[in-house]
Design a binder for these strands. Structure first.
Lengths: 199, 199
DNA sequence: ACATTTTCCTAATAGGTTTAGGCAAATTCC
DNA sequence: GGAATTTGCCTAAACCTATTAGGAAAATGT
């Protein structure tokens, strides 16, 4: 017999697991926005009573944390993929595009990556992979160790800041179009890294 | 008689106005975080029943919009102040510091500036002053018109991205300290604007 | 002093979160 | 294959927040 009951009217189990709920939560986030993700809405989606979810999730915060971790993983996977075999400006734009594209395809998940994780969770998350990959790109440029860290932070700021402003409509309806700005921003960052200033 | 009743137990009015509520809402945001700002919490703070606020505020979204507008105003005022009499890199760092300091002093209000406003409200907000001031700084550098727009967006991205990551703990507990990075970032942006690359 | 307006209140509805305790389905063990 | 046990989902309930409708008292105007 199939795991899935018809409309869940005649009993039978729904097959809830933390993973399944997290995945569905991520989809829900993309549909309605990360901060409209609610335990109740998720229960509705599984045609199950709200209380049932609490055997699989500690609470609402736990759900959001799991979605955030999922998104960070996905994003790091995409980044790793995109960086394979690339270096220099090529790698830089590839990474930047990963962020931008992910945010466009999965706005809710992208918002989830900004969910504030407690330090322990953050340290164990894919967030660290992101930092490592950005660092890897910088090996194609000639920076001293402390400046490499500064550059990692700067790149992170630009990518996140840009994507976040663009998603929030910050640049909307003003010419020139944002694709232009994006590609000129890549030019600018590449030039900056090749010509990193002395203090 | 004073406007303010003791504990509001024996009637007498509380003196609610949209402005007062907005201001208190902003303080509340700084204390508990912008997305924990709630009509109920605000009512509690005025020792008044929740429903009473609905004569002064359309709804929760309205409250948040007002707080966002307040924060944008404050921020633009600070920026205008900081820019007076400055140019070039001096102006650049002054503006950047305004953002960073404001976010540190008023995290809730700063978060409010990211609240998504509908296009009409946004157009009438102090947000446009921000863009103009950034543009003003760029007049100290030698950029063609389209590149000026790109640069405005880039600066906005860096400022917002940096502040937002720093507030979210993104850079925490890693050496070197963030003040270093901040000042090197200013060096980098100044160098970039002076040496803006061809396409 | 009286009529009007304003401001706050009570009452009610509707959702979201979370816990406690129950019964039936699935799994495990003879 | 049936009994014992575990697991999964449900009911019920308490407690938040948001929002609307309608009432009563305070402030204001004439």
């Amino acid at each position: 017999m199939s795991l899935k009951a018809y409309g869940r009217k005649g009993m039978a189990r729904a097959g809830l697991t933390p993973q399944r709920l997290t995945r569905a939560g991520a989809e829900l986030a993309d549909e309605v926005g990360f901060d409209h993700v609610t335990v109740s809405a998720l229960a509705r989606r599984f045609d199950v009573k709200v209380a049932s979810l609490y055997s699989h999730l500690r609470n609402s915060h736990d759900l959001k944390t799991r979605i955030a971790l999922l998104a960070l993983e996905e994003l790091a996977d995409r980044a790793a993929d995109a960086l394979a075999g690339r270096a220099g400006k090529d790698a830089l734009t590839a990474l930047a595009d990963v962020y931008r594209d992910y945010a466009r395809e999965h706005p809710g998940r992208y918002a989830a990556t900004q969910f504030r994780l407690d330090p322990a969770t953050a340290a164990a998350s894919a967030g660290v992979r992101h930092a490592q990959m950005t660092r890897a790109i910088l090996r194609g440029y000639d920076l001293t160790e402390p400046d490499q860290t500064h550059a990692v932070r700067l790149l992170g700021s630009v990518f996140h800041g840009y994507v976040s402003l663009e998603m929030g409509g910050g640049f909307s309806h003003s010419a020139p179009d944002t694709q232009q700005t994006w590609s000129r921003t890549m030019d600018a960052l590449d030039a900056l890294l090749r010509n990193w200033p002395e203090p």
